[in-house]
């Protein structure tokens, strides 16, 4: 970033920022750390896997759209609690959520991901990629699982996940922002907080760069999700219109 426009922020201010973002993250996570610890990490048995696989394509799509929408509602609440987000104009709040909420859902997915079994918590148990076969987009599902696995390998703490999520939501390079400069200021401050928390947690020097690489991977996954949805909608327009959650359609339906 341009040194001249970087805000000057004290260490105490950065500490405070990390604390408030982490608090908001923990308050708005769909599953609390204690709940996760109590989960038995139980995988779907084969008969249940087959039952998901034999669902009609549109029924499985609808189920996944509902699950994604539930997760996104928590992300909206997280965004609202980030300092400065609600001071942005409503156009920009919506632009940032439309572009960034699914990215945060994908980042949060690593909290619910079992790397050893390549499975994610879904509909009550842990599901491997094969559970999602009926969706008819195996490549996208495999990429989402690969992403979750690579996020897990970074072993981010909750405060690092929180600040990285805020950093993603406050991306100043989204199209259609009206007050880009204001978003830029917020994002720069959040980036300083991210650097600060990584240093404080004694991360290696390349940690921030590794997270930057995740940003482009997330953008590509979200673009592929939109393309896959639009291909599905071309075949099942009525299913999307009448059975998909309104929020999901607002965010991705175009």
């Amino acid at each position: 970033s341009d040194g001249d426009t970087s805000p000057t922020v004290s260490m105490a201010e950065l500490d405070h920022l990390v604390q408030t973002i982490s608090k908001s993250h923990l308050e708005t996570c769909q599953y609390l750390r204690e709940e996760l610890q109590q989960m038995s990490w139980q995988k779907f048995p084969q008969d249940e896997v087959e039952s998901y696989q034999s669902k009609p394509r549109e029924v499985m799509w609808q189920l996944c759209a509902v699950k994604i929408t539930e997760a996104i509602q928590y992300v909206v609440e997280f965004a609202k609690r980030i300092d400065g987000f609600m001071d942005l104009c409503q156009n920009d709040q919506i632009v940032l959520l439309k572009a960034g909420s699914l990215e945060v859902v994908l980042v949060r997915m690593c909290r619910l991901f079992d790397s050893q079994n390549n499975s994610v918590y879904f509909d009550g148990k842990f599901a491997g990629p094969d559970v999602f076969r009926a969706l008819g987009c195996d490549d996208l599902i495999a990429s989402v699982f690969d992403f979750a696995s690579s996020m897990c390998s970074l072993r981010l703490s909750e405060d690092e996940l929180a600040v990285f999520s805020a950093f993603l939501l406050l991306s100043a390079d989204r199209s259609w922002l009206q007050e880009k400069l204001q978003v830029e200021k917020l994002q720069q401050k959040t980036q300083l907080a991210l650097q600060h928390v990584l240093q404080k947690n004694r991360r290696e020097d390349g940690a921030l760069n590794k997270l930057r690489c995740k940003v482009s991977a997330l953008r590509s996954l979200c673009t592929r999700h939109t393309e896959t949805l639009s291909a599905f909608r071309a075949v099942y327009p009525d299913v999307v219109r009448t059975h998909f959650p309104p929020l999901y359609k607002e965010l991705f339906g175009a």
């Binding site: 509602q73 928590y74 609600m86 409503q90 959520l97």
Partner: peptide
């Protein structure tokens, strides 16, 4: 505004309609 009715509602509500 009509296009993003739910998002507007979620942003304006003091708490979102999820059981947080």
């Amino acid at each position: 505004k009509e296009k993003h009715k739910i998002l507007h509602q979620l942003l304006q509500n003091s708490t979102s309609p999820v059981d947080l």
